[in-house]
Amino acid sequence: MVKKRSIHQGPADITFNITNTIIMLTLIIVTIYPLIYVAFASVSDPAPLLQHRGILWKPFGWTWDAYKRVFANPMIVIGYGNTIFYVVVGTALNMILTILGAYALSRRKVMWSRPIMLGIVFTMFFSGGLVPRYLLVHDLGLLDTRWSLILPSAISAFNLIIMRTSFQGIPLSLEESARIDGANDFTILFRIVLPLSLPVIAVMTLFYAVYHWNSYFDALIFIRDRDLYPLQLVLREILVQNDTNNFTNGALGGDQYRIGETVKYAIIMVATLPILFLYPFLQKYFVKGVLIGSVKE
């Protein structure tokens, strides 16, 4: 932390502080208000909500009707279940491979680690592109399987390098004394390196999990079977393509449209809340992750 240098506050200083505070408050409102609006609208009574014009200061009434409709919809439930599967299995595989790779590439005196490292870095700046990637997944027979959302993104080169940098910071003496006691690399990884790296492990798990939770594009090109849709692809149909017909069963005409509107807001909440709830507790880890990545510069 930089020590604040408060010696005296001249008039210029005060103007500066006031302007700065106003800018920051504006930024906060612009950032957060859209989400507050959605939260208010999702629990509002549909009829007065649609007649209302302009900023929402509070919800109209209080009803969980939209949420009930969301959770009664089979596609949302399937999407939620699938996304949880992709997050859990995908992140687990991500972590296993990233840890193994980061450990192996952080060791000294390994003859082939430099060429392998160069190859990995190269893939960060040059890739075959969308179509060859699609054809590869097709040729491997992974199209329209759950694996198509897990295997092609099994390691992020960027995360691997961050973790490797972090492992390299562990004092060599610990490793050497363990080796004298007859420990092999697996023992050193699990007994020494991992227990000392819990923050970076937490950060990487979160980065990967958020990636799986939020990604839609791989599913868009690799998955046709609606039973395998992740939540984001279901959301895309409802939010972006404006298809809420499945949620308004039993309602007629204008009602159908009105209910569809609140259902959209409820869906946004349902899809975003898990991350928003975790967020305040995990924030310090996220920040740490970015900083570890910047150290190597």
Binding site: L97, L100, G101, Y103, A104, L105, W112, S113, I116, G119, I120, T123, F126, S127, G128, G129, P132, R133, L135, L136, L140, L151, P152, A154, I155, A157, L160, D185, F186, L189
Partner: peptide, 18 residues
């Protein structure tokens, strides 16, 4: 340890480059 990692990069990163 490196085997699965190298396999991943060879197949899913260098595969499309091929």
């Amino acid at each position: 340890m490196l085997a699965p990692v190298v396999a991943y990069f060879a197949i899913f990163q260098f595969g499309p480059i091929y």
